[in-house]
Simulated assay, not measured.
Amino acid sequence: MKEKLYIIKIGGALIDDEELLEQFLEQFAEIQEKKILVHGGGKLATTLADKLGIEQKLVNGRRITDKDTLDIVAMVYAGGINKNIVAKLQQKKCKAIGFSGADANLIKAKKREHAEIDFGFVGDITEKSVNRKLISKLLKLELVPVFSAITHDKKGHLFNTNADTIASVIAQALSVKYDVELLYCFDKEGVLEDVNNPESVIKNISEEEFSILKEDGKLHKGILPKLENALGAVKNNVNKVFLIKETELKNHIENHHAGTEICL
């Protein structure tokens, strides 16, 4: 029987709210099973870029990570945010250890290729990008890895990589060894059929149902990357995947009643 492992991803809105982050980390620290935390960024990188006069470049609504922007996000995500979370978890007697993908070659990425757009220092990853053996050794030592959304190519370049994708591919890689449950924590009760009605939580979403909801325009564009990565995890042997409200982590761990479950 495989040992239980929770892989939990949090986003920028939670990181930007110090009180909510504190509450979440209290609940995270109480999880007795093996666990990994993956975090995105917050507004700090944008705020810092504005202060430094570095323009944020968008092409067709997509962010371009040039060298100046990369320097900022690496400093903020892998530096300030990551170490702040690690310090708070240490305070709660959780043996957290912070990483970027470059550390010990834990996540190796490939520069995103696009026929028309150069996204700059944006890295794409798959399940094979993850150093499964080393992460497993860290878990065996009762350490709690905390991953920022920074990866590398083993050629001396750092990349900005989607944190939802990082959580998904780590879950896929470790599902060979562990009974993995992947949790995407965000500011809604789950995936909502009506974004204006917090009680309209969809309890289960399959790939077919996702396609229908997407086609009908019922899904907010911000939720799409989470759902796409969640489905990718389920299709690649991750045992359970949920989208839950960040304040419901403890309730979900204990009762499995919260949020939206992603299924085949």
Score class of each variant (00 low, 15 high):
Leu174Lys: 10
Tyr178Asp: 03
Tyr178Thr: 03
Asp179Arg: 04
Asp179Ser: 11
Asp179Lys: 09
Val180Cys: 07
Val180Pro: 10
Leu182Pro: 07
Leu182Met: 08
Tyr184Gln: 11
Tyr184His: 13
Tyr184Gly: 11
Cys185Phe: 07
Phe186Lys: 05
Phe186Trp: 12
Asp187Ser: 13
Lys188Thr: 04
Gly190Leu: 07
Glu193Pro: 01
Asp194Val: 00
Val195Ile: 14
Val195Lys: 10
Asn196Ala: 02
Asn196Asp: 05
Asn197Met: 00
Glu199Arg: 01
Ser200Trp: 00
Ser200Ile: 00
Ser200Asn: 00
Val201His: 00
Ile202His: 01
Ile202Lys: 00
Lys203Met: 00
Lys203Gln: 08
Ile205Trp: 05
Ser206Ile: 02
Glu207Gly: 01
Glu207Phe: 02
Glu208His: 04
Glu208Cys: 04
Glu209Asn: 05
Glu209Met: 10
Glu209Ser: 10
Phe210Val: 09
Phe210Gln: 06
Phe210Trp: 07
Ser211Glu: 07
Ser211Val: 02
Leu213Gln: 11
Leu213Ile: 10
Leu213Ser: 11
Glu215Asp: 09
Glu215Tyr: 07
Glu215Ile: 02
Glu215Leu: 08
Asp216Ser: 14
Asp216Val: 08
Asp216Lys: 15
Gly217Pro: 13
Lys218Cys: 12
Lys218Phe: 09
Lys218Arg: 10
Leu219Trp: 15
Leu219Ile: 15
Leu219His: 14
His220Thr: 14
Gly222Phe: 15
Ile223Glu: 09
Leu224Thr: 10
Lys226Asp: 12
Leu227Ala: 07
Leu227Trp: 05
Glu228Val: 13
Asn229Gly: 04
Asn229Asp: 04
Ala230His: 09
Ala230Met: 09
Ala233Gln: 11
Lys235Phe: 11
Asn236His: 13
Asn237Thr: 06
Asn237Val: 04
Val238Arg: 06
Val241Glu: 04
Phe242Asn: 08
Leu243Arg: 09
Ile244Glu: 11
Ile244Asn: 15
Lys245Asp: 12
Lys245Trp: 08
Lys245Asn: 15
Thr247His: 08
Leu249Arg: 14
Leu249Ile: 15
Lys250Ala: 12
Lys250Ile: 12
